[in-house]
């Protein structure tokens, strides 16, 4: 048996518009409007139902459907959180094309925009705002004893007014202390050699740091020999990221045990420049850095002159002392 039957998967990803899916247990009907996306674990469609527009996920992998429903059920018990979409129904559909029962679940349809395309449209200043929202949601999830796991921009949706970040695709959500169920290499601290794949809050916070880095470096990059140094250099080299370098490095090193601590430090870093006493202003452009360099050269010239004068004075004093004797 292969991981996913290719013919069946293909078929599930290409259900024609207008197909009516009726569950065999609860008898609710869903009419497919358009595809919303498909991945390794199934296909998601927009559908019409008695309750209005909904999102419906079908998969020939009953295991992953059941796992995801389990997580969504838990999430719905967490009050008022921007966690996953709320779960509406779960059932089996007898697929006439393949004569098989296809498990599916129905969730709230969240109309929104993908994280990165939102930032591209609305500007980089939104990165940190959305990350602050994300950290609040993660903190709630962590307090309930879970870790999101497969945290990446593709699983984040910005919806509503005011724009609010929502978590999608709960396939990676894992109980703390267990092995992360699903992950994506680029956002996985294990891949970067910077920690284990045991689910703890710091695992998600590492991914948050990677999302911020990726938001400023749109081209995906691969790990090099010294991964920590590599990430640090990239953070230092970007004007947006440099402002948060201490917070980002702490998240990368797994130093935050709680999302709320990282949020607090991020907020502090945002307002850092607004404070009246600025201890150090980072050079912003290469030209200003050159000027800075020149300045320091000048300063060292002054020091040199002072040094020579002092030495001469000393020699003269010694000479005078000798004359007096």
């Amino acid at each position: 048996m292969s991981v996913m039957n290719p013919i069946l998967k293909n078929h599930l990803c290409k259900l024609p518009v207008g197909t009516v899916i009726v569950g065999k247990w609860h008898n609710h009907a869903y009419k497919i409007v358009k595809p919303l996306g498909s991945g390794a674990n199934g296909a998601v469609y927009l559908a019409e139902s008695m309750k209005g527009l909904v999102a419906i996920k079908l998969s020939d992998n009953g295991t992953s459907i059941t796992s995801e429903v389990n997580v969504l059920k838990r999430f719905s018990k967490v009050q008022g959180a921007a966690l996953g979409p709320s779960l509406l129904d779960m059932d089996d559909w007898f697929d006439p094309y393949t004569n098989r029962a296809i498990p599916f679940y129905v969730m709230e349809y969240i109309k929104g925009e993908e994280f990165f395309s939102f930032i591209k449209k609305r500007g980089k200043e939104w990165i940190v705002i959305l990350v602050l929202q994300l950290l609040s949601a993660l903190d709630q999830l962590h307090e309930e004893g879970w870790v999101f796991g497969d945290l990446k921009p593709e699983n984040l949706l910005v919806a509503g007014m005011p724009p609010t970040v929502r978590l999608l695709d709960v396939g990676g959500t894992t109980l703390q202390g267990r092995a992360i169920k699903e992950f994506t290499e680029f956002y996985d601290r294990g891949y970067w050699g910077l920690g284990s794949r045991k689910a703890d809050p710091a695992y998600d916070l590492f991914a948050v740091a990677m999302i911020m880095i990726h938001a400023c470096y749109p081209l995906k990059f691969e790990r090099k020999e010294n991964t920590r140094q590599q990430l640090f250099t990239m953070i230092r080299a970007d004007a947006t990221l440099r402002k948060y370098q201490n917070v980002l490095m702490k998240a990368i090193d797994g130093a935050y045990k709680r999302a709320i601590d990282m949020k607090r430090d991020l907020v502090a870093a945002i307002h850092h420049d607004d404070l009246p006493s600025k201890p150090f202003v980072a050079p912003k452009q290469s030209s200003s850095r050159k000027q800075h360099h020149k300045k320091s050269k000048k300063r060292s010239g002054v020091l040199e002159t002072a040094f020579i004068v002092v030495t001469l004075l000393c020699v003269y004093a010694l000479y005078l002392y000798g004359q007096i004797l």
Partner: peptide
């Protein structure tokens, strides 16, 4: 497992 109603399936999945 597939013959169980979806609600029960979740409990079995947790055991797995």
């Amino acid at each position: 497992m597939e013959d169980l109603p979806p609600e029960k399936r979740g409990e079995v999945m947790e055991i797995v």
